[in-house]
Design a protein around this nucleic acid. Structure first.
Lengths: 191, 191
DNA sequence: GTCTATAATTAGATAGAC
DNA sequence: GTCTATCTAATTATAGAC
């Protein structure tokens, strides 16, 4: 995706149209503007993210802390796998989150705030139960997202530096295991 | 910095010149091209990063694993503080690392590879000594950089989502403590 | 809806006065 | 070195034939 690779300003509607084998003016026919196209792309990516979690129990309904811990562990694994399969979402998020802009506020209010709130609340419960690493609930969202997604956001640099292919299933699984072990060291029988 | 905020393509030499109260053609007078200006900016930022670590002992000279652990802990704290003070570097890195390009390879070969190699090697020693979290040495670089830098790379989104000011010294210190505690749970008397 | 042509704006880079 | 003027190319968006 052009928005993910080059950012909003760097992506040209011509190159976007080329990718789908269309003509540049068709973007302005099907969408009101480049901005509207961007919003549609972000809605689509967050929709796919929600789908990837659709069959999981909500994080605010676990009966006991250990069960919540296992729910969070599974959610973390899902997030790692989603970031590996669809790095575009995290690329767009990290790009738009750098500066205060209308696009950043639109994305934060419409999509990110709910995820951020759920993770923060679940982490508070895990901390009280002593099953989570000693991370402040107000910061853990950024630790999770940063640590989980960076090798996929920067997959090209992973390849250049180590020769590893971070989208290999074994690499992704290993990374998910690492994230869970690091964040939930108190979870019994991790996997 | 314009390159950090908008990426290479999104940053215009006109807006860059405006920021330093200069005229756009002066960029092409003092630098050969926009690309040369970008390289000079990246060199400058990595130079500042190296300066921030200049007084620390090299990570390959520690006599015993516990001492190495404390050296790594201090290096992690330095990195968190640098990312908070100079988020431009990590913004440029995350932006350029997304796609295979000449700029990405230039940056990886000239600057990133040495840091990546040192961290990976130090982590192998820490793992053998049992003082580090169970993260694969081939992946830990991305966990460290992602978890440490994201709240500063996306400081605007942190403000929008939580109202926190991630550049507040107490926030930065707390984040550094979180990172060290998460990555080096086996370190005696952490801090 | 698709596609060509093109308008209006902005981009990086250069020329040349001072 | 500084700054104005400008060139060429690329940008988003629109008009209009089909």
């Amino acid at each position: 995706m052009e928005f993910a690779a080059k950012g909003f300003d760097g992506a040209s509607t011509r190159s976007i149209a080329e990718r789908v084998d269309a003509f540049q003016p068709q973007i302005n026919y099907h969408f009101a503007s480049k901005e509207a196209l961007w919003e549609a792309a972000v809605d689509h990516l967050f929709g796919m993210l929600a789908n990837a979690f659709a069959d999981l129990p909500p994080l605010d309904t676990a009966e006991d802390p250990i069960t919540l811990g296992h729910h969070v562990a599974e959610a973390l694994r899902r997030f790692v796998h989603f970031a590996a399969a669809h790095p575009e979402l995290n690329r767009i998020m990290v790009h738009e989150g750098t500066a205060d802009s209308d696009r950043m506020r639109w994305m934060a209010d419409r999509h990110v705030r709910a995820w951020h709130g759920n993770i923060t609340a679940a982490w508070r419960s895990l901390r009280e139960a002593g099953v989570a690493a000693p991370l402040d609930p107000d910061r853990v969202y950024w630790v999770i997202v940063g640590a989980s997604s960076l090798p996929f956001v920067n997959a090209a640099e992973v390849r250049a530096l180590s020769g590893d292919e971070p989208t290999d299933p074994s690499w992704v699984d290993g990374h998910a295991d690492d994230i869970v072990a690091m964040l939930l060291p108190g979870l019994p029988t991790p996997r």
